[in-house]
Design a protein around this nucleic acid. Sequence first.
DNA 1: GACCAGGCACATC
DNA 2: GATGTGCATGGT
Length: 214
Amino acid sequence: MKTMPEKLTLMYKKLYASFGPQHWWPGETPFEIAVGAILTQNTNWGNVEKAIVNLKDADVLKPAALNDMSHERLAALIRPAGYFNIKAKRLKNFIGLLINEYHGSMSGMKQEDFNSVRKSLLSVNGIGPETADSIILYALEKPVFVIDAYTKRVLSRHNILDHDASYEEFQSLFQSKLKEDISLFSEYHALFVRLAKENCRTKPVCTGCPLEGM
DNA sequence: GACCAGGCACATC
DNA sequence: GATGTGCATGGT
């Protein structure tokens, strides 16, 4: 019988052996990563990319430009990402925090300690635990394990945790059983997403799954 | 045409 | 605290 750290490490090794490094997050700057994290809420990444291209083409993928923009124009630009009205508000809320508390720069946010950044991100309407942790891990490069629907599905199917367990329960499982390591946390989460896109979408048990037999 | 996609807030019980 | 619902586009 394997211990939990062994199990989680083996799972990571199997995914990494099958898919290789994912080099996440797909974004060029910390600010772009944060914008992408908000836009991808319950949304296919391909649609998010279209929205980000629109922002880049309009030369407005920067805090001040988005802050000055009307709701209507921003919503129109991010339209392909879906939920465009609510996401336009969420982007504005995030940028409000960035400007008011961190001098409008992601590097200002990065200098803050982990606990206070997470707390202030979570205080923003429209930023929940997954979005906050994605920003903290991939844009601010601080070690936190990101939990998403895929992570919950894989772990519950492998009877490691109940699907209805809380975000914090899933997160503390990884964070207590694995070495605190930014590249490990980054790759592991990305590999769960890759696995889901690859073959574990609807079937309870996937044939040819890298995790088969675990 | 149905179903899904890297959530979150809010109403109601 | 648990459960249900609105938000919306684009690909399969």
